[in-house]
Design a binder for these strands. Structure first.
Lengths: 196, 196
DNA sequence: GAGATTGTTGAGCGAGTGCTCTACAATTTC
DNA sequence: GAAATTGTAGAGCACTCGCTCAACAATCTC
């Protein structure tokens, strides 16, 4: 079947993902991507078709790994509220130390591209819906466990989505752990019952 | 003193502001700006120096008009909580109908440019600090009026900043009034006292 | 091994980028 | 009105953009 690939597509995609994540779509040129991936333009275009194709592949990869892991953390925690605390704790960690110091690839791309790429906007909306559903589930479980104040419940999920998006924005100013932690704590404090 | 300007600088700046606001920095070319402003490159460069200079001027104009008006709304309202409700109501309105359907210029630019332009990041941080201070003042007044639950107060200001940034992100998906209103209502519901 | 097929290389395409500069137009001072 | 000064018009600069393609390299089938 002819010559075999000499590079790992998944590995190259990971490098492209990080480059887009850090720099955004427009500010990342093919030349820069080629250097980062250690590939020639021809190989990139044979594997991914176009700059947009490479970006979409990176976005999918992000959803399947980074994003999915975060959602999983909310879903599998023992208590509903515990799962939320765990999620926010890891979010803050990643924003201080990890790759989330560049914010969130979905948030960044949504802000940069939603206005002129409806197809991508669909992907972004699905991502946000997944996160919202996950929050709603945790809030329902927390409610059942009597952990929430009266009035708080799954209908508070959109607020948590907004808070996370806001933290993704603020993370780009590198605000430091206390500031980020305070936001997460305040958000949850508004949901829990006051008699503890 | 030679020939006089045949165009209104402030008016042209307003057009550039809207163009940057809708399309972002990188995706807005000088050519496009010239067409929108109905000016030739020479005139633009004589008046603003560079693309970045024009952008910075637009950003300043935004802070002095759009942004200042919103902050003023929080500061001058009679009650602390009333001021916050008023602010969020107008925010939602502008996101559904007005120019905030493109989100917020500061949020958009922060996400797109903070990583590689420290000087701009300083401007963004000052803007966010102003908003936070304004929120803290309103929360202090609301607390004094007994409108808040125990534990809520000026220290909740960063949360409100995050919520607003999050709404700015979500606005780009054109989510519709109910979704945006629900977020604002949930945010305030987490701050007010439960016995009313 | 021969022939076919596929991947890699890297020069280079047309288009578009931010920006400049000269020729000309309008307004000033004298 | 003459000279000086400033703004405008628009062609065009050097460069970068996303992307292509012909030549070569490696692996397949027979």
């Amino acid at each position: 079947m002819g010559r075999t690939r000499t590079f790992d597509v998944a590995e190259a995609l990971g490098v492209a993902l990080d480059t887009f994540w850090e720099r955004g779509y427009e500010a990342t040129s093919i030349q820069l991507l080629c250097e980062a991936m250690d590939l020639q333009p021809g190989s990139v275009y044979a594997a991914f078709g176009s700059k947009r194709g490479l970006f979409v592949a990176a976005l999918r990869s992000y959803a399947e790994t980074v994003s999915a892991e975060a959602v999983e953390r909310i879903n599998t925690a023992a208590g509903g509220l515990a799962g939320l605390r765990d999620y926010f704790a890891h979010l803050v960690d990643a924003m201080v130390d990890g790759r989330r110091r560049w914010g969130c690839l979905v948030t960044n791309s949504l802000v940069e591209l939603a206005e002129r790429d409806p197809e991508l906007t669909g992907m972004f909306e699905r991502h946000l819906a997944t996160l919202s559903t996950s929050f709603a589930g945790a809030l329902t479980r927390a409610r059942a466990a009597g952990e929430l104040r009266p009035g708080a419940g799954p209908e508070s999920a959109p607020l948590l989505v907004a808070v996370v998006q806001g933290m993704n924005v603020l993370a780009k100013t590198r605000p430091g752990r206390p500031a980020l932690q305070a936001i997460a704590d305040s958000a949850l404090a508004g949901l829990v019952s006051t008699q503890d």
